[in-house]
Nucleic acid binder design. Structure first.
Lengths: 189, 189
DNA sequence: CTGTAATTTCAGAATATACTGAAAATTCAG
DNA sequence: CTGAATTTTCAGTATATTCTGAAATTACAG
């Protein structure tokens, strides 16, 4: 890392590089994305090379990766060969993309693997028990995924309103009490 | 990996080892945990060594890691030196622990870093813009964390009931329409 | 206490991942 | 078309992570 980054921006970039690497994203790619998020104007590969002090080819590969995650948009300026990259201006858009991509890459294959193992006939008690755990896991993941998808449907504006409700977010889920509260009555007036 | 694991159980273990490694968890540790989850009875370190075909010392380190995540419980048998390990019998308990630990290790430090950067006075327009993005990010993460915490309050039994409601999970979040629906009225009858 | 069964530690080896520079490929202004 | 600007590829190198065996430590049955 080098050049004209201010300490504030440096700290952010370093932190998110670190975070990225804990979540299976290459540290450098994480830094590149952090930089793009903080900049209003699109950057070209050389800008990134200079800002982070890494090789041009590394930047090229990183951008390719970010493109494959659909986290970054490619732009051209009229009469210029050079390519410019930018991150969405809306944090919630970024989060939704991350969630969506993770789902495609990890959750869906996992659910599929589980389903394949669940249709087999257990050979003995041990496998029967194992299958039961797999069944519970499948159910749970599927449910959490459904919830997540509901939340993803919200757009930034809606989310903004929700934010303004502040800590009373709890109220949204108070609904649960009506659903789960006192036993068998499942009707909600 | 070796010995007496059935193909079904092998597949599960391999898949979750792979998944773990994409989420910043060592592949072998992921496999160890997968094995523990599938087994009803607690296992000792040698059982794991044999089942996965890895070194005894590797198992020792992996168990240490799983203990630090509080994902695994240590048990003793009367009149035996040997230590036995087991995973919670409830998948939702496991998920809650994972979420909780991730929060402690990644989310909280991130929020703290963001707050520190947000109290600084921006030196120029660029920093002002960057800070704005950080502010939005902080708000979003905080809100998602609050939601997650609400959901974590549910116990398995409650979750079970919720599951039985099936796909009408959407209903839980229909609440959002009442909150966000048609503009300014914030009261919920 | 003591001896032994068990666990932990850790330096070094094995493996996997990330990074670079140079060369090849691509793109488009002229 | 052409060739200069730009991007991509990739073999080799550097770095980081994981794994092992041997030695040190610990815990407890007797």
């Amino acid at each position: 890392m080098s050049e004209k980054l201010t300490p504030m921006i440096q700290s952010f970039i370093l932190h998110f590089g670190e975070m990225g690497s804990r979540w299976g994203i290459n540290r450098t790619v994480g830094q590149m994305y952090a930089l793009l998020v903080l900049r209003k104007e699109p950057l070209c590969a050389d800008d990134i090379t200079e800002a982070l002090g890494i090789s041009r080819s590394n930047v090229s590969m990183g951008l390719k990766e970010l493109m494959s995650w659909e986290l970054v948009k490619l732009q051209h300026r009229p009469g210029e060969r050079k390519e410019f990259y930018s991150a969405p201006g809306d944090v919630w858009d970024i989060a939704k993309t991350l969630i969506e991509q993770r789902r495609k890459r990890e959750i869906d294959p996992t659910l599929s693997t589980l389903r394949n193992l669940l249709i087999e006939t257990p050979a003995n008690d041990e496998e029967a028990y194992a299958q039961q755990r797999m069944r519970e896991m499948h159910e749970l993941i599927e449910m959490l995924t459904l919830w997540t998808q509901e939340i993803q449907r919200l757009d930034s504006a809606q989310l903004g309103k929700l934010l303004k409700l502040g800590n009373s977010i709890g109220k949204v889920l108070d609904m649960k009490d009506r659903l789960l509260g006192s036993g068998k009555k499942e009707s909600m007036k």
